[in-house]
Amino acid sequence: MPETGHVRPTKDQLATAHNTTIPDVIAPGLDVLFCGINPGLYSGALKQHFARPGNRFWPALHQSGFTPRRYLPEEQDRLLDLKLGITNVVARTTARADELTADEFREGGKLLQAKVEEYRPRWLAVVGITAYRTAFGFPKAGVGRQEHRIGDTRVWVLPNPSGLNAHWTPAGLAAEFAELRAASETRRNR
C-alpha cells in the first residue's frame, strides 16, 4: 500500500532511469553514512534512495531509533539534520543488483573509500553483505561491526533491506539497525 504523498513512477520514467545516477545525501562529519548496493530503477526514476514501497530501509531506520518517525523517501535530505546520510557502492541504477559485475563492485569500493576519506563519517554502514564482501575483498565478512576501517571511520555491515531479502524479517532488520545505532551513540558519548 503506498504511503501518503507517495508518487509512483511511470513505465517511461522507469525505462529512462536505467543506468542513471541519483545524488548522495551526504555532508562532512556524519555519525552514520548508510551505503546501499546500487539504486533500483524506482529510486532512479524518483531520484530518491530506497524509494520502492516494499523496501524496508525507512521502517528499519525508524524502528531502530535512528529517526523520530518513519521518514518517506522524498524526505531523505532531512537525514542530514540527524547526522545521517546515504550513498551507494555502485552509483548506476539497474533493474536488479545481479546486473552489476564484480569489477563494478570493486571499482565502487575504491570510489566509496575515497568518499569516506573526504567526508569522514564516524560510521560507514554498508547495507548488503555481498556488496561489502565483493567491494572490499572480505569474502568471509558477516553482518555487524567489522575490523576493517577506512581512516578513522568504523565499518558496519547491515542486511539488505530489500523486500526481496526473505532471510531477514522486518523485526530482525530493525534489531540489526538498532545495534549499529547503539554502537554509534556509545562511541559518540565517550
Rank of each mutant, 00 (worst) to 15 (best):
F57Q: 04
G44N: 03
F50S: 12
I150C: 09
I22W: 04
V157A: 11
G44C: 05
T153W: 01
D12Y: 10
A114Q: 14
R122A: 14
R52A: 13
L164G: 08
W156H: 11
F105W: 14
L79N: 04
S184C: 15
L111F: 00
L79C: 04
V116T: 14
A135C: 13
F105H: 08
F34D: 01
G142F: 04
T186D: 15
A114S: 15
D98V: 09
R120L: 15
F57A: 01
V116R: 00
E104A: 05
T93A: 04
S162C: 12
P53D: 02
E75W: 02
D81K: 11
V157E: 11
D31L: 13
R190L: 15
H62R: 06
F138D: 11
L124N: 01
K47P: 00
T130E: 02
G29Q: 06
R154D: 14
L80S: 10
N165P: 08
V25C: 03
P139K: 05
L180Q: 10
G163N: 08
A51S: 11
L173H: 10
E179M: 05
S184V: 04
C35A: 05
D31M: 09
L84D: 06
K83M: 03
E107A: 09
T4K: 14
V89L: 09
T134I: 14
T93V: 10
F105T: 00
L180T: 12
P53Y: 06
P139H: 03
K47G: 15
I150K: 00
V116F: 11
R149V: 10
A166L: 05
D81V: 05
P39Q: 07
H6P: 00
G65E: 01
A60E: 01
T87Q: 01
G54C: 04
G151L: 03
P121G: 12
A174E: 03
R92W: 07
Y119D: 00
G65S: 05
H6R: 07
G142Y: 01
M1Q: 10
V90N: 00
P139F: 12
L46K: 11
Q48C: 07
P161L: 03
R78C: 00
Q48Y: 11
A174C: 00
L180P: 04
D31F: 01
L111P: 01
A91R: 15
A125Q: 01
T20G: 07
W123C: 03
V32W: 03
A102N: 04
A17F: 03
E179D: 10
A95D: 13
V155M: 03
P28L: 15
K83Q: 13
R69N: 01
L158R: 06
Q113Y: 09
S162N: 09
F34L: 04
K110G: 15
Q13R: 15
G29W: 14
P59E: 10
G151N: 11
Y42C: 01
A114P: 08
R154A: 14
V32M: 06
E117G: 11
V7A: 10
L173C: 07
A175G: 05
G172E: 15
V89H: 02
Q113S: 08
F66M: 02
V89T: 11
G109W: 13
P2V: 01
N88I: 06
V7Q: 12
L72R: 09
R70Q: 14
P23K: 05
L30T: 14
R122L: 09
L158F: 12
K140F: 06
R181S: 13
R120V: 06
P170N: 13
A27D: 08
A171Y: 07
T10V: 13
G142Q: 13
R92F: 09
A174R: 13
Q13Y: 08
